[in-house]
Each structure stands twice: as C-alpha cells, then as structure tokens.
Design a binder for these strands. Structure first.
Length: 741
DNA sequence: GAGCACTGC
C-alpha cells in the first residue's frame, strides 16, 4: 500500500497545483512516471502520487530576494582565509566594520544592548574583539556564550587567528570535556550550559566584565536561565558598596550585557532589559529567491517529490536540500526518489541521495560533505540537523516541507509528566533559517511547500524551551544558588504545572525536604552533570555497592548519541546480532553488557578493529566514546563524595540485583505495573497507561513490574529504556509516604 | 512494532 498522509483536508488528498501571479509554468518531463505498474507500488512505503502527472507545478512569485536573518552556530563571516591574505583586511571588509566606532560608543554608554545581526555580519567574531580593543572590558574577561559546543570552539579558533594568538592564550574557550583558557585569556567562548555551571561556583560571575549572549533567539533553557540571572547580577554589581551592607559588589566593575539575536524578536529582549537600545547590523548573505506554494499541500512527501524532480530537470547545477520532519519520512522519500530517478532519460544528471539525521551510524552520511561528482546532483534529505548544526556545501536549492518534530514536556499534577514528540508546523524563524541554507555560497532558491498565507500565520519563533522541558534540573540548580525558580524574573514564565512537578520530583529524590529546602543529598545531586534522576541513581549506587556498573550505564544513557544505530533495511540482522547482548532483565543491563564487551574489544583491537566491531554489531561508537568521557567525569565527582570504584565492574553478573535497586531509586516516578490485558502497563505514580517501546529488549515479554528511562508519546505513550524489577523492590524505595528531614 | 535537535566545573 502506498502511504498516504492526510494533513488538513482529506478531500484535498489529490495534489493541488502551484499557482503564480506571473504564470510561471514549469514543464515536467517525467510525467510518465505515473504509468509505473501498480504492483511496484507495493514495494516499501512511499508517498501517494495521486494527481502527480496531471498538472505542472507552479509556484507563486516571491516578494523579491530575501535575506534570511537567523544566524547559525558556525563562524560568522568568511571562514576560509587564503594563506597569504590578510586576516585584518578581511576583518575590515565585514559589514559590521563600518559601524565599529558607533557600536563601541553604544556599548560604552549602555549597560545592556541588543544586537541584531544577520548571518555573515561577523558580529559574533568582531564584537568581542571591539570590546577588548576599546578597553571597555577593563581587566576582566569578555564571555561569549553559545548554545552549541562546536560553535564555541570554532569561533574561538577563528578569533584567536585574527588576534594572532594561540587558542587558550588571549582567546580561549570552555566547553564540556574541553577547556582551553588560561591566566591571559580575555575573550572566552563558552557554551551556555558551561556558564550556568560557572554561576554555581561564582554567583556574581565576577571574572567577567562583559557577557555576550549569542544566539539568544534560540531561547534554550540555559540561555533563559542565564538572562534571568544576569539581570539580577547586573543590578547587584552596580549597587554602591553600602547599599546592602556588603562591600563586595562594588569591588567588581558593573556588568555589561550584549544580547545578540536574529531580527524577529529583538523587541522582546529589549523590553526584558528595561528597553535597552537595539542596534542593527547588516548581514552579507547571498540572495535567496523564495517561492511559496499557491495552495496548501495535503501531502508534503508527494509535493516534495514533485518539486525535487522539477528542480532536477529544469534548473541548473547545484545541490538540493529537502527538510523533512523525521527519519521515516526521509526513508520513504528516498525510496520514491530512487525509483523515479531511474526512469529519467539517460542524458539527465545522476542523483545521489544523502539522508541525514542524528541517529545515523558514523560515516553513513559522509558523502554529503563531498562535492558531487561531475554530472551529478546531490539530494540531501535532512531533518532539522541541517538547519543549524551542520552546514552542507554546494546547496543551491532548498525544498521546505514546513514541518518538524518537536519534543514537548507535558507536566501533570500527579505522577510526573511525559514527553510528546509530534510533527508540527515550523516557525517563521525556522522557515527563514531553512531558506538561508540555499544562500551560503551564492544566490539560491527556496521552494516552500506551503502558502505565503501559511507562512504569515506561523509563530514568529518556537516556544522557548523553558515552556517545553522538564524543569527539575534548573530548579535544583537555582536552589543551590539559594533562589527559588518561581521568584526569578524570566522572559517567559514557565508553566505552573512544570514547576510543581519539578519540586515534587526533587522532594521524592530527597533533594528537598518537607519545607522545600535543599538537603545535602540535593546539593550532591547538583554537583553531577546529569539529569537529577540519574544523579540520584549514582548516589544510590553507593548504598548498594554498585557504583562502577551504575556509572557505566548512566554514562551511556546521558550520551547525546544513541548507542544502537538503526539501519532500517537491516533491522532484522541488527536485532539478531543484538540478541547476544540482550539481558533478561532488560535494557539497562543490556547496555552494561555492551559496554563490557566493547571494553574487552578495546583492549584487544586497534582503532580500526574497534570501529569494525561496532559497525558489525550495529553499535554507535561515537556514543561509546562519549560515554567514556562522561564516565571519567562522573568518577571525579563521585570521588568527592566518597563513592568507591575500587572493585570495578564485576565480571560475573551477580551484582544485577543491586544495580536494579539503585536504578529504581532514581526511576521511582518512572515505574509501571502490568495490566490484566498482559500488554499495557499502568504507572504506579500517575494514571497513564503505557506500552514498552518496540526497540526495547523487553518489548515482546511480559513482566509484572517495570522501570524505564522516559515516556514518549508519538502515536502511543511508549516507555523507553526499560528494565523488569521484582515488585518487592518498590518497598525499598522512598515513596510518597516517606518523609525527608 | 518504532527513534526532531542541542547541552552539562
């Protein structure tokens, strides 16, 4: 069966035309593809092609070239200086250089300014240097925060080169696992998570005289937390010394804040900082011509397929980037494009399809970064990964479905909440960012598979993370600063239920006592760079004497990449190979088994051998390596609290019970009991009925009681990362009845 | 019977 997606109007399942005031008609030489035998349609899922052949697509004319404005995590400005060309010349040629003196004056006069700069304006590399060169920073440091690590490190490298110093000297960076800064460092690029960590040990950020918050429009939870804290810190540091009976504040320079953002929501930042002045910096992005669909598309996959071949057959050279919401759409579109590409006349250009999403195995997407061979067009099918984190060379055409998947935390008054992961319409800011991907190297074209009216109706930017995430970790961090989350002045108020559910979780962990005060346990938990529930598990492992095992497991769970890679066409053989790692109690001990096996291989094999072993077993080595770094970091924190690693991970499995008991301590809220139907489970705390996710080692078995890492609602509520525990374990865990002093 | 993207002294 062909897969038909109905989005809005069932009757509109027939594909509509693209219409244009300019009557821009495009011929579709591939119309005969519709004549492919029906039998072939059965092979694999792919979009409905209803009406595909009937009328040519037409796009409405753009409102002239557009220069999308959201900047991305990569280095602003030219990034490949010729060996001999002068970096200083390049600096002077940047759009921002013209306004240098004015900008310096503005920053000198104001405690806060909001800086709007388009991609390519050079704001992220130049403003810190201007501040330093003008002497505004005094003797302290300039911090530049970034949401992503790669951005922080590559920006530092660029600016160090411009200053003609080594990274770690006058210009440095600080990201997790990697710090390059020293006593001489004056400009420091760091992740927003890192500066929030610094806040915990230095609540006034006394090492800095200027904080530049870059990419503020992304509104990560940590950026919002930082902005809220900065407001208070700034007030405190500008007080006269006797105002609060403490002299300490006056010893510090007043703090200057520069908020850098995309153009769309600058007013909001300005208002938040008492109407701080807004400065605008012209960008230098190549023009991107934008076409909107004349009518809304009920089937974005079919529409994307049509438009791709339209571009492929009618337009000049240049790679095509198609934005899709998720892996299944990518795989399905890949099959369709492959099928129809084979039916093109021989003289046409070849098509190389590059799927791109985060769960891919290492190296699976390497061809995307190589230039396409002669007479070949790359077609990149990507999720949001290509929107900000990865820049793909050669892209001239963007096809934007207007959809993405977004995680949203649904807090409940009882029993904790769960995440939803649903396909949603993108935002204006995201749409502009996607279009901008066509103009990285030259002028480009973006085809939007939605109407101009739909674009105008989009939200300006995504709901800030503070309204979409669990707040448990942030509430705990603020508690360590002696602050209560709900008393802080945030740009957007968090959802009340989320705050309540965060406090409740922390109380259940014993991190807060009955008076909502931080306990010693809570302070210890906050010291771990972990989700609070995992931090609780690590602390519990001391009691049960299984810290080595727990830390291995928690490290893998905390790694950003998934341990098991998914190659959907080899799903069966992958499952077969994984069976030998499968532990009867479930996913947690299965992970431990994989880590142990990898460590044995690591002793016996060289780098290539290890990589081959991972590939053969469908394991993501990147996840294992990242987990190793996390483990080493966690061991250091453990050492501070007397958690011992002397015995190491036991070779036999007779510590399994202890491991499961420790896990249960952090996952109290994530537990469920088998229902009489023998398929679904009911939360022990809360009323949600859940199923075990099919990727779990336990999915095809029945267990009276389970604990799990997370609940995600996609088309059902699934428990992921599941282990079976004896019901009696619940008795040993702190529950609602237990009081904390 | 199925997985948007980031991040942490």
């Amino acid at each position: 069966m062909a897969k038909i997606r109905i989005l809005s109007n069932k009757k509109a399942a027939k594909l509509r035309n693209f219409d244009s005031p300019k009557k821009r008609r495009v011929k579709m030489p591939w119309v005969d593809v519709e004549d492919s035998p029906r039998s072939k349609r059965k092979q694999g899922k792919r979009p409905s092609l209803n009406g595909l052949h009937k009328t040519p697509n037409r796009f409405s004319a753009p409102n002239g070239p557009s220069s999308p404005s959201k900047s991305n995590g990569s280095v602003d400005g030219p990034t490949k200086p010729g060996k001999s060309s002068s970096l200083q010349e390049q600096r002077r040629a940047l759009p921002i250089a013209l306004g240098r003196e004015k900008l310096i004056a503005k920053i000198r006069q104001n405690d806060v300014i909001v800086l709007l700069g388009e991609t390519g304006s050079g704001k992220t590399t130049q403003v810190p240097q201007y501040i330093l060169e003008s002497g505004i920073a005094g003797t302290r440091m300039v911090a530049v925060t970034q949401p992503r690590r790669v951005a922080a490190t590559s920006l530092a490298a660029r600016v160090a080169a411009e200053q003609n110093v080594k990274v770690g000297a006058a210009v440095g960076y600080s990201v997790r696992f990697d710090e390059r800064s020293g006593p001489d460092t004056r400009i420091k690029y760091l992740t927003d998570g890192m500066i929030v960590r610094e806040l915990l040990s230095d609540p006034l950020l006394s090492r800095y005289s200027v904080i530049i918050v870059d990419e503020a429009h992304e509104r990560t939870l940590r950026t919002d937390l930082l902005l809220a804290s900065l407001k208070g810190i700034q007030k405190y540091r500008s007080q006269p010394s006797d105002a609060k009976g403490k002299g300490r504040a006056s010893l510090l320079n007043p703090l200057k804040i520069v908020v850098m953002s995309a153009t769309l929501d600058a007013e909001k930042f300005s208002k938040f900082f008492d109407n701080a002045p807004i400065e605008y910096i012209q960008g230098r992005q190549h023009p991107v011509q934008i076409f909107h669909s004349a009518e809304s598309q009920s089937d974005y996959l079919a529409a994307a397929l049509r438009v791709f071949f339209q571009v492929h057959t009618d337009q000049g050279p240049g790679d095509v980037l198609i934005f899709l919401p998720g892996q299944d759409d990518i795989e399905s579109l890949e099959k369709s494009i492959r099928l129809y590409a084979n039916k093109l006349p021989h003289k046409s250009m070849e098509v190389v399809i590059c799927p791109m999403y985060a769960a891919q195995a290492a190296g699976q997407n390497s061809k995307v970064f190589n230039a396409a061979p002669p007479n070949t067009r790359k077609c990149i099918l990507a999720t949001n990964i290509a929107e900000t984190s990865i820049t793909i060379p050669g892209v001239k055409y963007v096809i934007d479905t207007g959809k993405c998947k977004e995680k949203q935390y649904l807090a409940r008054e009882t029993g904790g909440g769960f995440d939803t992961l649903l396909t949603k319409d993108i935002t204006k800011s995201s749409a502009n960012q996607r279009a901008g991907r066509a103009g990285r190297e030259g002028s480009g074209v973006c085809f939007r598979l939605y109407t101009e009216a739909a674009y105008n109706n989009m939200a300006v930017s995504a709901d800030p993370e503070i309204r979409r995430c669990s707040l448990t970790s942030s509430v705990l961090q603020l508690k360590c600063l002696g602050q209560d989350f709900q008393e802080l002045d945030f740009m957007d108020k968090p959802d009340y239920d989320s705050v309540v559910s965060a406090y409740k979780s922390l109380w259940l962990f014993g991190a807060l006592n009955n008076s909502k005060e931080l306990t010693p346990t809570g302070r210890q938990m906050a010291a771990f760079p972990l989700d609070p529930c995992y931090a609780r598990i690590v602390l519990a492992s001391k009691e049960y004497n299984c810290a080595p095992e727990i830390v291995e497991i928690v490290s893998v769970l905390s790694a950003s990449s998934k341990l098991f890679v998914d190659v959907s066409d080899q799903r069966d053989s992958a499952a077969e190979l994984r069976r030998k790692f499968r532990h009867p109690t479930g996913d947690h001990l299965t992970i431990l088994g994989v880590v142990k096996a990898y460590q044995e291989i690591a002793l016996a094999e060289n780098k290539a051998g290890r990589r081959e072993w991972c590939r053969k077993h469908f394991l993501n080595e990147r996840a294992l390596l990242e987990a190793r770094d996390i483990r080493d970091q966690l061991k250091q924190t453990c050492a501070r609290f007397g958690i011992s690693f002397d015995e190491g991970v036991r070779a036999d499995n007779n510590n399994d019970d202890a491991v499961l008991k420790a896990l249960a301590h952090g996952l109290v809220q994530n537990s469920a009991l088998l229902q009489p139907d023998g398929v679904t489970y009911k939360q022990t705390m809360g009323h949600t009925t859940v199923k075990i996710h099919p990727s779990s080692a336990l999915s095809d078995r029945k267990h009276p009681a389970i604990i799990f890492n997370e609940l995600v609602y996609t088309n059902q509520v699934y428990a992921r990362g599941v282990s079976s525990i004896p019901k009696s374990f619940f008795l040993s865990i702190p529950t609602l009845n237990q009081r904390h002093s």
